[in-house]
Amino acid sequence: MTNVDTILKDMIIIPKGIFFRGSNASPDEQPIKQILLSAFAIDKTPITNKQFRAFVEQGGYDDPTFWQPKGWAYIRENEIKYPNYWYDNHFNQDDHPVTGVSWWEAMAYAKFAGKTLPTEAQWEYACKGTDDRKYPWGNKEPTLAYANFAYDCDPTELVRSSTSVYDHPKYKSFFGCLDMAGNLAEWCLDNASTNYKWDRDGKDPIYITKDEDYHMVRGGCGLHNEDFLRCTARDYYPVSVRDNLIGFRCVVNNVKEEEL
Protein backbone atom coordinates (compact mmCIF):
# COMPACT_ATOMS: atom_id res chain seq x y z
CA MET A 1 0.00 0.00 0.00
CA THR A 2 1.12 3.55 -0.62
CA ASN A 3 1.30 6.06 2.21
CA VAL A 4 -1.96 7.56 0.96
CA ASP A 5 -3.60 4.13 1.06
CA THR A 6 -2.38 3.66 4.62
CA ILE A 7 -3.70 6.99 5.77
CA LEU A 8 -7.05 6.51 4.06
CA LYS A 9 -7.52 2.99 5.47
CA ASP A 10 -10.75 2.84 7.48
CA MET A 11 -11.77 6.25 6.20
CA ILE A 12 -14.74 7.17 4.07
CA ILE A 13 -14.08 9.46 1.15
CA ILE A 14 -16.77 12.06 0.73
CA PRO A 15 -16.91 13.85 -2.64
CA LYS A 16 -17.35 17.58 -2.79
CA GLY A 17 -20.99 18.47 -2.32
CA ILE A 18 -23.72 20.83 -1.31
CA PHE A 19 -26.03 20.47 1.69
CA PHE A 20 -28.12 22.54 4.06
CA ARG A 21 -26.39 23.02 7.41
CA GLY A 22 -28.39 23.67 10.56
CA SER A 23 -32.02 23.36 11.59
CA ASN A 24 -34.83 25.25 13.25
CA ALA A 25 -34.68 22.99 16.31
CA SER A 26 -32.40 25.25 18.36
CA PRO A 27 -31.15 28.86 18.08
CA ASP A 28 -27.52 27.76 17.87
CA GLU A 29 -28.27 25.78 14.69
CA GLN A 30 -29.47 28.84 12.79
CA PRO A 31 -29.57 30.36 10.31
CA ILE A 32 -29.94 27.37 8.02
CA LYS A 33 -27.56 27.86 5.12
CA GLN A 34 -26.54 26.10 1.93
CA ILE A 35 -22.95 24.90 2.32
CA LEU A 36 -20.42 23.92 -0.31
CA LEU A 37 -17.74 21.50 0.87
CA SER A 38 -14.62 20.30 -0.88
CA ALA A 39 -13.92 16.58 -0.97
CA PHE A 40 -12.51 15.08 2.22
CA ALA A 41 -12.04 11.73 3.92
CA ILE A 42 -13.37 11.04 7.41
CA ASP A 43 -12.72 8.18 9.81
CA LYS A 44 -15.44 5.57 9.67
CA THR A 45 -15.44 5.35 13.46
CA PRO A 46 -14.20 7.52 16.31
CA ILE A 47 -10.56 6.91 17.24
CA THR A 48 -10.54 3.81 19.41
CA ASN A 49 -8.37 3.07 22.43
CA LYS A 50 -6.49 0.54 20.30
CA GLN A 51 -5.70 3.19 17.69
CA PHE A 52 -4.73 5.77 20.30
CA ARG A 53 -2.38 3.26 21.97
CA ALA A 54 0.03 3.65 19.05
CA PHE A 55 0.33 7.35 19.89
CA VAL A 56 0.94 6.63 23.59
CA GLU A 57 3.41 3.80 22.98
CA GLN A 58 5.34 5.61 20.26
CA GLY A 59 6.04 8.55 22.56
CA GLY A 60 3.34 10.92 21.38
CA TYR A 61 3.08 12.53 24.80
CA ASP A 62 6.84 13.14 24.86
CA ASP A 63 7.29 14.61 21.41
CA PRO A 64 6.54 18.33 21.10
CA THR A 65 6.44 18.15 17.31
CA PHE A 66 2.90 16.74 17.48
CA TRP A 67 1.64 19.46 19.79
CA GLN A 68 0.59 23.04 19.47
CA PRO A 69 2.67 25.19 21.84
CA LYS A 70 -0.18 25.80 24.29
CA GLY A 71 -1.21 22.15 24.16
CA TRP A 72 2.36 21.09 24.89
CA ALA A 73 2.51 23.53 27.81
CA TYR A 74 -0.81 22.16 29.11
CA ILE A 75 0.28 18.52 29.17
CA ARG A 76 3.70 19.35 30.64
CA GLU A 77 2.25 21.54 33.37
CA ASN A 78 -0.29 18.87 34.29
CA GLU A 79 2.10 15.94 33.78
CA ILE A 80 -0.29 14.26 31.36
CA LYS A 81 1.02 11.03 29.82
CA TYR A 82 -2.14 9.24 28.69
CA PRO A 83 -5.90 9.83 28.40
CA ASN A 84 -7.82 10.41 31.60
CA TYR A 85 -9.73 7.10 31.45
CA TRP A 86 -6.85 5.01 30.10
CA TYR A 87 -6.96 2.67 33.11
CA ASP A 88 -10.71 2.75 33.73
CA ASN A 89 -12.29 -0.47 32.50
CA HIS A 90 -15.60 1.25 31.88
CA PHE A 91 -13.99 3.20 29.06
CA ASN A 92 -10.68 1.60 28.04
CA GLN A 93 -11.67 -1.43 25.96
CA ASP A 94 -9.79 -1.73 22.67
CA ASP A 95 -12.81 -1.13 20.44
CA HIS A 96 -14.31 1.65 22.53
CA PRO A 97 -13.67 5.25 21.54
CA VAL A 98 -10.80 6.86 23.38
CA THR A 99 -12.02 9.41 25.91
CA GLY A 100 -10.63 11.67 28.60
CA VAL A 101 -8.74 13.50 25.89
CA SER A 102 -8.56 17.26 25.73
CA TRP A 103 -8.85 19.10 22.43
CA TRP A 104 -5.06 19.45 22.58
CA GLU A 105 -4.63 15.67 22.76
CA ALA A 106 -7.09 15.11 19.93
CA MET A 107 -5.15 17.57 17.76
CA ALA A 108 -1.81 15.97 18.64
CA TYR A 109 -3.08 12.50 17.74
CA ALA A 110 -4.47 13.82 14.47
CA LYS A 111 -1.09 15.28 13.56
CA PHE A 112 0.62 12.02 14.53
CA ALA A 113 -1.76 10.20 12.16
CA GLY A 114 -1.19 12.67 9.31
CA LYS A 115 -4.74 14.00 9.67
CA THR A 116 -6.67 16.77 11.39
CA LEU A 117 -10.03 17.20 13.12
CA PRO A 118 -13.21 17.76 11.11
CA THR A 119 -14.83 21.13 10.83
CA GLU A 120 -18.35 21.23 12.16
CA ALA A 121 -19.65 21.44 8.60
CA GLN A 122 -17.66 18.35 7.55
CA TRP A 123 -18.92 16.43 10.56
CA GLU A 124 -22.53 17.40 9.89
CA TYR A 125 -22.31 16.54 6.18
CA ALA A 126 -20.76 13.16 6.96
CA CYS A 127 -23.65 12.58 9.36
CA LYS A 128 -26.69 13.67 7.40
CA GLY A 129 -25.58 13.90 3.77
CA THR A 130 -28.04 15.46 1.39
CA ASP A 131 -31.37 14.00 2.52
CA ASP A 132 -31.73 16.21 5.60
CA ARG A 133 -32.23 13.25 7.92
CA LYS A 134 -32.71 14.06 11.59
CA TYR A 135 -30.41 11.40 13.04
CA PRO A 136 -27.43 9.68 11.42
CA TRP A 137 -29.54 6.57 10.80
CA GLY A 138 -32.56 8.40 9.41
CA ASN A 139 -35.69 9.82 10.98
CA LYS A 140 -36.77 7.07 13.38
CA GLU A 141 -36.75 8.33 16.96
CA PRO A 142 -33.84 7.01 19.03
CA THR A 143 -33.94 4.05 21.38
CA LEU A 144 -31.02 2.46 23.19
CA ALA A 145 -30.84 0.05 20.26
CA TYR A 146 -29.69 2.96 18.12
CA ALA A 147 -27.16 4.64 20.36
CA ASN A 148 -25.66 5.00 23.83
CA PHE A 149 -27.45 8.02 25.34
CA ALA A 150 -29.44 9.01 28.43
CA TYR A 151 -33.17 9.75 28.41
CA ASP A 152 -33.76 13.13 30.08
CA CYS A 153 -29.99 13.44 30.60
CA ASP A 154 -30.40 10.92 33.43
CA PRO A 155 -28.26 7.81 32.84
CA THR A 156 -29.77 4.56 34.08
CA GLU A 157 -26.47 3.45 35.59
CA LEU A 158 -24.67 5.50 38.23
CA VAL A 159 -21.32 4.37 36.84
CA ARG A 160 -21.61 4.79 33.08
CA SER A 161 -19.61 2.97 30.43
CA SER A 162 -18.83 3.64 26.81
CA THR A 163 -19.79 1.10 24.17
CA SER A 164 -17.90 -0.34 21.22
CA VAL A 165 -17.76 1.87 18.13
CA TYR A 166 -19.17 -1.16 16.26
CA ASP A 167 -22.12 -1.75 18.60
CA HIS A 168 -24.72 -0.23 16.29
CA PRO A 169 -23.61 -1.29 12.77
CA LYS A 170 -27.13 -1.24 11.40
CA TYR A 171 -27.36 2.48 11.84
CA LYS A 172 -24.75 3.98 9.58
CA SER A 173 -24.75 7.65 8.71
CA PHE A 174 -25.67 8.87 5.23
CA PHE A 175 -22.09 8.25 4.06
CA GLY A 176 -21.54 5.13 6.18
CA CYS A 177 -19.87 6.47 9.31
CA LEU A 178 -20.49 4.59 12.57
CA ASP A 179 -21.07 5.76 16.14
CA MET A 180 -21.62 9.42 15.32
CA ALA A 181 -24.58 9.79 17.68
CA GLY A 182 -24.23 9.15 21.40
CA ASN A 183 -21.49 7.21 23.22
CA LEU A 184 -19.03 10.13 23.09
CA ALA A 185 -19.32 13.60 21.62
CA GLU A 186 -16.54 14.42 19.14
CA TRP A 187 -14.15 17.37 19.11
CA CYS A 188 -14.25 19.60 16.04
CA LEU A 189 -11.76 22.08 14.63
CA ASP A 190 -14.09 25.07 15.04
CA ASN A 191 -14.09 27.36 18.03
CA ALA A 192 -17.36 27.78 19.89
CA SER A 193 -20.10 29.94 18.43
CA THR A 194 -23.72 30.30 19.52
CA ASN A 195 -25.13 30.55 15.98
CA TYR A 196 -23.94 30.58 12.35
CA LYS A 197 -24.18 34.31 11.69
CA TRP A 198 -20.40 34.41 11.27
CA ASP A 199 -20.58 32.36 8.07
CA ARG A 200 -20.81 34.72 5.09
CA ASP A 201 -20.16 32.62 2.00
CA GLY A 202 -20.91 29.02 3.04
CA LYS A 203 -17.80 27.64 1.33
CA ASP A 204 -15.78 25.18 3.44
CA PRO A 205 -16.81 27.16 6.53
CA ILE A 206 -14.82 27.14 9.73
CA TYR A 207 -15.03 29.45 12.75
CA ILE A 208 -11.64 30.17 14.32
CA THR A 209 -10.84 32.56 17.16
CA LYS A 210 -7.95 31.17 19.23
CA ASP A 211 -6.72 27.64 19.80
CA GLU A 212 -7.21 28.01 23.54
CA ASP A 213 -10.82 29.20 23.28
CA TYR A 214 -13.73 26.79 23.73
CA HIS A 215 -14.21 24.31 20.87
CA MET A 216 -17.28 22.70 19.38
CA VAL A 217 -18.22 19.07 19.87
CA ARG A 218 -20.83 17.10 17.94
CA GLY A 219 -22.91 13.99 18.39
CA GLY A 220 -23.96 13.82 22.04
CA CYS A 221 -22.80 11.21 24.54
CA GLY A 222 -23.94 8.67 27.07
CA LEU A 223 -24.76 11.44 29.54
CA HIS A 224 -26.86 13.53 27.16
CA ASN A 225 -30.36 12.95 25.84
CA GLU A 226 -31.80 12.22 22.43
CA ASP A 227 -31.80 15.83 21.29
CA PHE A 228 -28.00 15.76 21.13
CA LEU A 229 -28.17 12.78 18.78
CA ARG A 230 -29.59 14.93 16.01
CA CYS A 231 -27.16 15.49 13.11
CA THR A 232 -27.39 19.27 13.52
CA ALA A 233 -27.13 19.48 17.35
CA ARG A 234 -24.18 21.46 18.70
CA ASP A 235 -22.31 21.76 21.99
CA TYR A 236 -18.97 23.13 23.16
CA TYR A 237 -16.42 22.73 25.96
CA PRO A 238 -13.12 24.19 27.17
CA VAL A 239 -10.11 22.77 25.32
CA SER A 240 -8.78 21.38 28.61
CA VAL A 241 -11.77 19.11 29.32
CA ARG A 242 -10.77 15.48 29.81
CA ASP A 243 -14.08 14.10 31.00
CA ASN A 244 -15.65 10.86 29.79
CA LEU A 245 -18.01 12.75 27.49
CA ILE A 246 -15.77 13.48 24.53
CA GLY A 247 -13.71 11.59 21.96
CA PHE A 248 -12.95 12.42 18.34
CA ARG A 249 -12.51 11.20 14.79
CA CYS A 250 -10.18 12.62 12.14
CA VAL A 251 -10.35 13.85 8.57
CA VAL A 252 -7.97 14.22 5.64
CA ASN A 253 -8.46 17.30 3.47
CA ASN A 254 -7.30 17.98 -0.07
CA VAL A 255 -8.32 14.52 -1.18
CA LYS A 256 -7.45 14.24 -4.86
CA GLU A 257 -9.89 13.12 -7.54
CA GLU A 258 -7.94 9.91 -8.23
CA GLU A 259 -8.54 8.83 -4.63
CA LEU A 260 -12.30 9.13 -5.03
Binding site: D152, Y236, V241
Partner: peptide
Protein backbone atom coordinates in the same frame (compact mmCIF):
# COMPACT_ATOMS: atom_id res chain seq x y z
CA UNK B 1 -11.45 16.59 34.34
CA UNK B 2 -10.09 19.90 33.07
CA UNK B 3 -13.19 22.02 33.53
CA UNK B 4 -12.81 25.78 33.67
CA UNK B 5 -11.63 27.33 36.91
CA UNK B 6 -14.14 30.17 36.60
CA UNK B 7 -17.10 27.82 36.00
CA UNK B 8 -19.38 30.58 34.68
CA UNK B 9 -22.53 29.19 33.08
CA UNK B 10 -22.10 29.41 29.31
CA UNK B 11 -24.67 30.46 26.72
CA UNK B 12 -25.91 27.21 25.28
CA UNK B 13 -28.80 24.77 25.28
CA UNK B 14 -29.83 23.12 28.57
CA UNK B 15 -32.33 20.42 29.38
CA UNK B 16 -34.78 21.95 31.87
CA UNK B 17 -35.61 19.04 34.14
CA UNK B 18 -38.53 20.89 35.77
CA UNK B 19 -39.97 22.05 32.45
CA UNK B 20 -39.31 18.79 30.58
CA UNK B 21 -37.97 20.76 27.66
CA UNK B 22 -35.01 22.66 26.25
CA UNK B 23 -34.05 26.22 26.98
CA UNK B 24 -31.31 28.23 25.32
CA UNK B 25 -29.32 30.52 27.62
CA UNK B 26 -28.52 33.60 25.55
Amino acid sequence: AGYDKDGIIRPKKYWMVDLKGWGFAE
